[in-house]
Design a protein around this nucleic acid. Sequence first.
DNA 1: GTGAAAGCGCTAACAA
DNA 2: TTGTTAGCGCTTTCAC
Lengths: 329, 329
Amino acid sequence: MTTAAHRPATLEDVARLAGVSRSTASRVIAGTGFASPYARERVTTAVERLGYVPNPAARALVRGVGVRLVVAVAGASAAVLDCPYVHQVVGSAARVCTPAGVGVALHWLPLGQPGELDQLARDRSVCGVVLVNTTNELLDAIPRSLQGRVVSIGVGSSAVPSFDVDNAAGAGEVLRHLYATGRRRIAMVTGPQWLPCSRRPVDAYRGLMRQAGLPERILPGDFSAARGRSAAGEALRRWPDVDAIYAISDETAFGVIAALRDEGVRVPGDVAVAGFDDIPLAAMTAPALTTASHPVGRIATAAAIAVLDGRPAAPVTLFPSALVARASA
Amino acid sequence: MTTAAHRPATLEDVARLAGVSRSTASRVIAGTGFASPYARERVTTAVERLGYVPNPAARALVRGVGVRLVVAVAGASAAVLDCPYVHQVVGSAARVCTPAGVGVALHWLPLGQPGELDQLARDRSVCGVVLVNTTNELLDAIPRSLQGRVVSIGVGSSAVPSFDVDNAAGAGEVLRHLYATGRRRIAMVTGPQWLPCSRRPVDAYRGLMRQAGLPERILPGDFSAARGRSAAGEALRRWPDVDAIYAISDETAFGVIAALRDEGVRVPGDVAVAGFDDIPLAAMTAPALTTASHPVGRIATAAAIAVLDGRPAAPVTLFPSALVARASA
DNA sequence: GTGAAAGCGCTAACAA
DNA sequence: TTGTTAGCGCTTTCAC
């Protein structure tokens, strides 16, 4: 490895130094095709001496594949691109894409304008798409040419494999924990109405309440702490006997707890509160938050690998979510 | 805009449909060079009809520029790539790189092995580098060929512009707040020793303590909540009269508060606690955390734009950090 | 087993 | 103002 030359070496340079043709050099470097041990040895040496690094862009161009994996996030405004959840997806994706010479892009998909996807499909630099916060409308609008290289973190379809947390199971565990610890007047703060994957915990809630003969008390939310705050106030007003609030996310749960505290309601004494996601801080607060785990990094990694690999993935890959019982419920 | 064709249109297709040469089409599309209003009109129409999207990879290849911006994070292990801070940098960078057809890559730079940078310098697909958690050793090892397209979030050098939070000022504000509210036995939990940019708050602390004739009480940390926990225990043991703990990060501060609570020490009654970063949850906890703001997203955005633009940036761009006084101090 | 040649999609001289 | 020409760096038939 020499010190960085002013002009980075090309395959041509390697071939010349090794005394072989570009084709031969290409074969041994890409690890494709035949090459005599002798040629192999000479090329390898030349690569080392020159500090040669292949140019993924040139490679992609000739192979007809893309150099960017796009994380496409559906939402009402471009502000969805700023949330920590999306950032973690992008970070995890970048980590697995980097060794493949692929970069990560971040797109906003306006709700109700599935045409945006066509744009992505026609961009030859796009090797694949990871959908986040998918809607069925979006799923139905996936251009044929994107099929086989698009996956969803959230709901999927016959054409789009899904990688998601088993939030129905996680919600079930948390709700049963609430029930087992004596809670009978359980309210739930949900996710956005338009987001299909956030309906599963709601369905779990409904099923369990019905099964236990308990009243359904649903407050629409949006994952935010602010909404948790206001929803808690509503809950107290509408159902003075409420003894537990289950929130769709830890953020929301913290908002709920803050509002309860302001109202002089004790947690978990008067009202138990549980969340979902098990973010790092859930263990640090007072009271520590009872929640369910959500392996976002692992999910995003699997999703990115699936589009990178390009082989057909299972229609649905569910990642387990387990109860993390702490002090708040 | 037609429905996505099976084979995405190329410049050639556009030129043919418009009845002009590839060059002319290229000129009007890239917005470079001359073109008659007539040609311009015909090309634009063809682009629309075909739903043509230029291929950034091909463009980059011929222009000799890269298609990836790499976020390079120094650290003891690859685990540094998993922290929310890094994710936010990557997310913000991806957002500004996407419209430029540039993807984001995420690299780990092992401490003490500055050779890794040469690799990046020789990769022609790399258009620039954003350094995170830089050391002076790393800064000195920047290959010449990378100069002008590398910036640092953290300390910089004559060759590497720095984009960072003014954490000295932020720390100063917080510490003066502590002092103004009567605290006189103030301990500090620092960042990692090897990280130069985290030394500035320590220097601010030292300067202020000295100036006020107060004792210096320093506990080395690593930004983590776990270390905040253990450091708080140490502080209590070594300095039973401690009445304030200033932590280098909100994470650490939450760890400190948790440990204090476990020990039966009241916050802020017995010991005031302050952090740094003003993460969203800082406002939601009990007690709400007193801290200083840290506009990570804005910093990362500015850094990425600077390498994308490629024009010389100011040697140092400091982003303001202001006291956010809440309940914990 | 190896090399010559063609070409991926695009831009940028240079002539016309 | 426009088109012709020559590549950017790489892979990949297809002869040899």
